[in-house]
Design a protein around this nucleic acid. Structure first.
Lengths: 143, 143
DNA sequence: CTAATTGCAAAAGGTTTGCAGACTC
DNA sequence: GAGTCTGCAAACCTTTTGCAATTAG
């Protein structure tokens, strides 16, 4: 995982200015193991910046994504962001529906997929959703 | 694939009224091998109904989805619809980025995925994107 | 004839853009 | 000091909702 100051350094080296908000964003994402929606980010940031506006959050998410610090994924509920994986090998994710935590899946199903003769594969998506150890337990306790 | 009159019958048997628009919708989807966005549908329908409104398109897409005639999938570009697969077995899709055509993939990667001890899997997604035979050829011709 | 469907208008989300003042480097 | 970033306001796009008129069964 990227640490806060690595993120800061990445942004700074690209000519971006390091504002308080961006520091807080860097900390937020380096402390969060999973995906965050723009609203999640806005709510979190709002606790520290009273006059915070949604557009700034969006702008910073975009900037950080274009820079390769964050990666963006489309869920049923909308767009979410997380730190860009630093894994060197191609991999997929197992994602907790409760807390957003992700585990890497090293196995890639493409290796075993029969592609029709003239179909040119460009990309693929393999995602597993469920409840992680902790969230599973919580759920069990509630019942 | 479902044929137009099967779709009509399904809708009718659920107490839905069969309007001209719904007949056209049924035809559109039974003739389309792939995914359509609400806008695609609206544009197509608009050619036949001058006063067409977007909300009616949405309402009908929703109704047909709730009825199980259509299935809805989230792509990067937004929501899209296609005829609900009638395949009996669980399967995945290979999707053409150009024309939206889908091929079924019978192989399911979940069988070979190592799930961490206490992770409870709820659902998964495996999709392959690329260009189908026809669109591949077109692309080749353009170059 | 009755209830479902449609178009219109308007609202509700989510996301983007232009601008002037504030701030980083 | 120059140029970037921020908040504000407003625009934009997609999707939903309430209502009265229309239409299918």
């Amino acid at each position: 995982m990227l640490k806060t100051d690595e993120i800061i350094r990445m942004m700074s080296s690209q000519g971006l200015r390091i504002t308080d908000q961006r520091k807080t964003l860097a900390t937020l994402f380096s402390d969060t193991p999973g995906y965050l929606s723009p609203k999640d980010v806005y709510d979190y940031m709002g606790r520290f910046y009273s006059g915070l506006s949604f557009d700034t959050v969006y702008r910073n998410l975009r900037v950080m994504e274009e820079l390769g610090v964050l990666e963006q994924v489309m869920f049923e509920e909308g767009v979410k962001f997380k730190l860009h994986c630093r894994e060197h090998h191609h991999h997929h994710h197992m994602i907790c529906l409760q807390c957003g935590l992700t585990y890497p899946i090293t196995f890639c199903p493409m290796d075993q997929t029969n592609v029709p003769e003239q179909f040119k594969v460009v990309k693929h998506k393999f995602e597993v959703f469920g409840y992680c150890k902790d969230c599973n337990q919580e759920e069990a306790n509630v019942e």
